[in-house]
Write a protein that binds this DNA or RNA. Structure first.
Lengths: 254, 254
DNA sequence: GAGGTCAAGTGGTAAGACCAATCGTGCCGG
DNA sequence: CCGGCACGATTGGTCTTACCACTTGACCTC
């Protein structure tokens, strides 16, 4: 048996598992405050550093939150049991956003090119369906499904490229950014004129692929990503402005 | 105020973000061993417990693994999501080879382009070393190390592109195909004239990156892959011919 | 030369102390 | 009597020190 991991005698892991069990079992409900660290450490029969390491693990998993001087609390949203490391990194390191878009610029451009060359009738059919539902969900203001449809549209293009690697890597990337988009959707979907531009770009890619014009498809797909890049940059600038303004107000008030 | 989290001065978080950044940036590669905790703590200017809490966070996210008495290592899990699905496919279905080369045609072309734009002196240095050892190992007819050097050369280009995703995906691909190359190396390395062409192509990419000429670098990198594609196709044809010939002999004998 | 043994180095755990943020309480002034 | 303010108890955050358990590799013995 290659996977021999039962005998790991790491206290912090055992404590973390214990606390996790208490939360899942229900004896620690969301919003509850844990006993003080000093108190809890003697109750569990471990030292405070060990207990702290266990707590930090659960904090990094989003199950607990600590407030300096306040206490340690169970997070009220335990709907996020699993977090993708890539996704967490995206939140923590905004520079990754640029790398990601740059990568998509290459990947989706090539995918659109190949899709225009190789798409079969079945591929076109799926593309049509994805494009149609994309517009419908937006009209219904059902933004959750709208994002799903957006992802499905891009995935349909990737699969129409008939390259296994492009398909899988695109799927991986889209899965990673799906959650990210969900939280930042107001940046892209809030203003109607932005949406109409996005949809126009989607339409351009879709049309070029349908008409089997590889160069146009690639160009349109890249233009789409470039627009998103520009949008993100503008949003970041605007946020920076607001942030500075807020800080100035704070200074004036003090 | 919904998102008030700017003033949280938690050292363990800062240290965790620092280590995370090092991993993403590439200065800590998957499989690498971190410095000892006592050593790293003084280097970062924090106490050992704080460093340990940070490490535990990353461990709980699967980015690091610790071995009691051994050390702390960077997990290769980051690349796993990209590799897992098609890791085993490649060996069984040689048709994927075409997809793979097509993907590399895009990926390494873009990597060379960005590398020519962004390579620092340190990147150039690594590139020089890889290129040099590539020639040396071939002269020594040490083909195993020759492949390693080849992989290292392409990886150095990918890292010089200064894009986290390009770096990781390239690493994944190269790792996957490493074994594949080993078995098929005679197709590419056997005949001296083929080798000299390959090395000339490597030299072209290397030179274009050194001289910071993005378009030339991308073109050279793509030409390299196209040559490999052509080589593989020729080899496949030749093998098919031989296979048919052998079958004819078999039929004649029966 | 092959084997085992031991020491150095590593992560794992513990205890105690102090700092900083929070929050409740009680005092004081209105 | 009520409200605001300051103080202190409580709590998480950090550091220091020390010791234990495991791994590794070099040295020594056979």
């Amino acid at each position: 048996m290659p996977q021999r991991r039962p005998a790991v005698t790491r206290i912090s892991d055992a404590v973390a598992a214990d606390l996790e069990a208490r939360i899942l079992e229900g004896s620690l409900k969301p919003g509850d405050r844990l006993p003080a660290e000093r108190e809890l450490s003697v109750e569990l029969g471990v030292s405070r550093p060990s207990l702290r390491e266990a707590i930090q693990k659960l904090v990094s998993r989003g199950m607990l939150t600590t407030r300096h001087g306040g206490g340690t609390f169970v997070t009220d949203r335990l709907e996020a049991p699993f977090v993708d490391p890539w996704q967490q990194m995206l939140d923590g390191h905004p520079t990754l956003q640029a790398d990601l878009l740059e990568f998509r610029h290459m990947l989706e451009g090539q995918a659109a090119f190949l899709a225009a060359e190789r798409a079969t009738d079945a591929d076109i059919k799926r593309l049509d369906a994805a494009f149609e539902s994309l517009g419908k969900f937006y009209d219904d203001e059902d933004f959750d499904h709208c994002i799903d449809a957006d992802v499905a549209f891009h995935q349909a293009i990737a699969e129409a490229a008939h390259n296994v690697l492009i398909g899988h890597v695109t799927a991986s990337l889209l899965r990673v950014i799906h959650g990210h988009i969900s939280r930042n959707l107001e940046h892209l979907y809030a203003r109607p004129q932005r949406w109409s531009k996005l949809q126009a770009q989607h339409h351009a890619v879709w049309k070029a692929i349908r008409e089997h014009k590889p160069d146009e498809a690639a160009k349109a797909a890249r233009a789409h990503i470039e627009f998103v890049m520009q949008s993100m940059a503008d949003t970041a600038k605007e946020e920076a402005r607001r942030h500075i303004a807020r800080r100035r107000l704070g200074e004036a008030a003090s």
